[in-house]
Design a protein around this nucleic acid. Structure first.
Lengths: 210, 210
DNA sequence: CATTGTGAACGGATTCACAGCC
DNA sequence: GGCTGTGAATCCGTTCACAATG
């Protein structure tokens, strides 16, 4: 059965499956079972089958999944069958690192713009990009119909920058600023506050025995 | 009631409360209710009360929570009442950015070492730190009894680096490498694979109407 | 006959509703 | 009176167990 809209937890696992499938295909492996996917990902085999079942029946009973076929399906589901254009707002150390990092790593995503409000930074070049004035951002978002943005501006600027992004048409935001962002219905924010991530880890380190 | 060990979801929210409390204290606000915390964090008031109840009864019925008192309690729970020493392994763009970023942002955590295996990078200085040879890492971990590490090395080196970290005494790892890490019982890994984070966001952007 | 796809059982986290208390 | 603390009810995701099938 397909398409009772999938929970967030499922959506978060799809890119993991994609990464494994890319690896397999690079190694010319054609068929993979849910058990093998389980070993590679650390998720249970049942969970993997259930996840995929939200979107259709992609496997072959008795055999497993065809890696290429499943990869194509997942690309379609996520929306990565066409390269996605993304902008980065905030060209501090983190913004620049993410821009460089993603350019190298990710065949499915292209960072097409990076913005800042600091005249000292605007104009700097970064691989093939030039840091642009954040005031020019709305026009570029609209013209290029960009839907996804990464926010690495300081806390105090985050909400106003996001308001402007949303007004221009951005639908999904990866937020590195340490603050809660208010966005209208229909816009997704994922928080990636690294300070918080690190602090919650410390809990486990400090309660670890030995 | 206290201390049936709290679920991960609770632990992940504690640092958010901490951040809000820090802000309040900076603004000289002394008392806050779970409803107000709810507005600041986006979590429900009941959830916040339940979360805190895992560790004790910190509030005053009829009034709310004393910001300073609650902050101290949360610091103790997480283990941030003493500054925590952290190392970064991998001094590429991301590793360097995280090092700089955390040094500025985080009063509770101190990055005390950054390591790489590339002779061209070893010896570079970064604020008050010098990039050291990853071969020197085990000794430093042991000597300084470091428990928390951040991994930003390429996928192919991640597992061996982590094995070495764990062997030297690291108990918690924030992993930016796009791979599943195998660690023994008792060691925590949090994955912060930014590619995966971004791809799952794209799902929402590509299914957004309009 | 191995492996998928899936209803049913389970468990854990969130929400509800209210008793307890300042 | 207002807000915390918490048992009970609910919701939702995971695991189980097995029927379906190439």
């Amino acid at each position: 059965m397909a398409n009772r809209d999938a929970p967030k937890s499922v959506i978060k696992r799809l890119p993991v499956y994609l990464r494994i499938l890319d690896n397999l295909i690079r190694r010319d492996i054609e068929i993979i079972s849910s058990r093998e996917l389980s070993e590679e990902t650390g998720f249970t085999a049942e969970q993997i089958r259930k996840d995929l079942a939200y979107f259709g029946a992609f496997g072959t009973r008795g055999a497993g999944y065809n890696a290429n076929f499943l990869r194509e399906k997942i690309l379609k589901i996520i929306g990565l069958h066409k390269k996605t254009s993304v902008i980065v707002v905030g060209a501090g150390h983190l913004g620049k690192a993410l821009t460089r990092y993603n350019m190298i790593k990710n065949p499915y995503v292209e960072i097409v713009g990076i913005f800042d409000n600091d005249p000292a930074i605007i104009g700097e070049s970064l691989n093939s990009l030039t840091v642009k004035d954040v005031n020019d951002m709305p026009e570029i978002i609209k013209k290029q119909k960009i839907k996804v943005g990464i926010v690495t501006v300081p806390e105090e600027h985050a909400q106003s920058v996001v308001d402007s992004m949303v007004k221009s048409g951005i639908k999904a935001i990866l937020n590195f600023a340490p603050t809660k962002l208010d966005v209208p219905e229909g816009v997704q924010v994922h928080n990636a506050d690294l300070t918080i991530e690190l602090q919650s880890l410390i809990y486990y380190a400090s309660t670890a025995e030995d």
